[in-house]
Each structure stands twice: as structure tokens, then as C-alpha cells.
Design a protein around this nucleic acid. Structure first.
Ligand SMILES: [Zn+2]
Ligand SMILES: [Zn+2]
Ligand SMILES: [Zn+2]
Ligand SMILES: [Zn+2]
Lengths: 157, 157
DNA sequence: GAATGCAATGTAATACTATTACATCATGTT
DNA sequence: AACATGATGTAATAGTATTACATTGCATTC
């Protein structure tokens, strides 16, 4: 059986790294922002904004859409979460401080997504876009498809 | 100065190709669907669904959201338009019948988008995803960035 | 210490995107 | 005629995101 969400210890460690990262950058990871990040991390998969809002409210926080969207906007600017536009969802970044160049492998079946921070994956593609005069943005390329687990499920029952 | 939309002759030719394509496939390009396609083509850039709805109404058509979403769903299934999820917009495909493997170069500044149907652009990337057990979907990869025109605008005033 | 400025949050309202559900209409088949 | 089917009309609703303005807390300045 698959795990439903991240182990609390791993969440704690992840949060600690995020705190250190913000401290180093002089950015303000407030309790609210930290709490939203914690929720995103704990899911271990892309989360929608209104799920986060519900979760905040369930914890007794006051909350409305701007509450969560503002927190997410901050977290994305800090590189702590990434927005997956094809999924309208937000994914915690496992390595704040990295380049976030590479891909996100987004499974249409189970909804999970894997961030692969490997610039060498996309560099050959991006380099060729120069021929079109196109300057690609830094960031992750979203690749929809079927993940390993779902593929095995499908192929070997 | 840049053109605002496609030349009527080019729209007509494009539509004729689409009609031939649907005839060949035995699919039903009804007047409504054809009209929506015409609107998408004429813009020459990604269009949002509610813009199309407004345009339909301006032409005297009855219309509500399902009207346009159903037409777009049909057109996408036929490969006549592509949905750009990062933009929440729809782009007419210049070559129905192609593989639609490749990329869409989507400019954040001017909003234009260029479909590049060249599988060789993405194949090296997609092949390497096998190492992750990931099976990418067929389709175009959306690449956000700055187009040639906007880059020149920016660099040489 | 009062006044000021600023960043963060609270709150209500609204805009924008997309789908569901059900009615109607036309067309072709039995 | 009865029926099935695909396409469209229409109303309502769900889901995503932003705007606008009020409030709070804290640091700076006078
Ligand atoms: Zn990342
Ligand atoms: Zn999966
Ligand atoms: Zn295409
Ligand atoms: Zn541009």
C-alpha cells in the first residue's frame, strides 16, 4: 500500500531547511506562510489552493482565498513551492536553492508529481529554441504522463 | 507594425483544410463548430473561452459557456485546436493531421504562441524520462518565455 | 511618546474558468 | 409512429483567482 502523506519527521526536516533558506535570504517566513508550506509539504503531492484553505480553516485559522493565494505567492517567489499550471495545483519544492531547472513529471492517473531538478534534461531542447529567437524562461517544464507506479499497475494488474 | 489578426484569405484556406480533414475522418464539423474554429484561427493567437463566447454572441449566435466549451472539446479531439493550460487559452493548429509532437513557444509579454511540430526537439528529453519509469503523454510541451519580437523590442528599444 | 510608514493579514465582494444537469431539436432507423 | 442518437439551448453551479479596502503590529522618525 502506498503512503498517504509524508512522515512527520520528514516534514519537520523539510520545514527546517525552508526556515534556514528564508533566514539566509532575509525573507519573512511568517507563521501563516510556514503553516501553508507545512500543509503543502505534508501532502507529498500537488495540492489545490482551496484544499489548503479548507485545511487552514480546519486548524482554526481565519482564512479566505487571499490568505492562501498570498502565502503561495510568497512561497513560490522564495522557490519553496512550484505552481503546476496544467494541474492548477501547488507542489512543495524538495530543494529550495536549487536552480529549479528540469522537469516535473506529473501523473494524470494518480495525481502525483515528481520534480526532477536536472538541467541537462532540458538544456538540449532549450538551446534549440534559439533558432526561433525564443528565450525560454528559467523554470521547470511540466510533463504530463503516467508514472512508474501507475504504469506497473496498468501493465501487470 | 504588427498584424492584429490573420488575413481573411489565410483564414479561409485554413478552414478549408480543416473541413477536408474532418470529412476525411468522418467527423462532424457543424456550422457552430466551424464558426468557433474560424474565430480561433482569425485571432492568430491563443484565445480564451469567454472571449470566444463574447465573439459568438456579437455575431448573433445564441451562446452560453457549454456552447463554446463543447465546440472546443470537439476541435481539440480532432487536433484542430490545442489547449494551452498555462495560459488557459486555445490555439488553432496550423497542421491538423500532424503528430503534434514538439513544443509551443508561448510568449509571456505579447501573449502570442508558436506551435513547433518537431518531435526531434522533445524526443531526447522524453527518452530520458524512461529512467524514471515515466511514460510521457503524446502532445506538445508548453514552453513559456519571450518571443523573438519581444526580445528585440526589449534589447534594441 | 506621538506620528508616520510599511509589511502582513482579515474580510467582503467580485471576476474568471469550467462543468453538470436537463430540455429541446433534428436526423436517421426500425 | 416509435425510437435512438448526436448536437445544441439554457439554467444553475462548481472551482479558481483577484481586487479593494480595512485592520493590525512593528519599526522609524520626529
Ligand atoms: Zn524546486
Ligand atoms: Zn501515477
Ligand atoms: Zn497542432
Ligand atoms: Zn512576444
Amino acid at each position: 500500500m502506498r503512503i498517504k502523506s509524508l512522515h512527520p519527521d520528514r516534514v519537520r526536516a523539510w520545514l527546517a531547511r525552508a526556515e534556514a533558506w528564508c533566514r539566509a535570504r532575509g525573507s519573512n517566513l511568517t507563521p501563516l506562510r510556514r503553516e501553508v508550506l507545512e500543509l503543502v509539504i505534508a501532502r507529498g503531492r500537488p495540492v489545490r489552493a482551496y484544499e489548503l484553505l479548507d485545511a487552514l480553516r480546519a486548524r482554526g485559522r481565519a482564512g479566505s482565498p487571499p490568505t492562501v493565494y498570498r502565502a503561495l505567492e510568497f512561497l513560490e517567489a522564495e522557490g519553496l513551492v512550484h505552481r503546476l499550471s496544467a494541474r492548477k495545483a501547488w507542489l512543495a519544492c524538495p530543494e529550495p536553492g536549487h536552480d529549479h531547472a528540469g522537469v516535473v513529471l506529473s501523473c494524470r492517473h494518480c495525481g502525483r508529481a515528481l520534480e526532477v531538478d536536472d538541467a541537462s534534461l532540458v538544456e538540449p531542447l532549450l538551446a534549440r529554441l534559439d533558432a526561433y529567437g525564443f528565450e525560454p524562461e528559467a523554470g521547470l517544464l511540466e510533463v504530463p504522463g503516467t508514472c512508474d507506479w501507475c504504469r506497473q499497475e496498468r501493465d501487470h494488474g
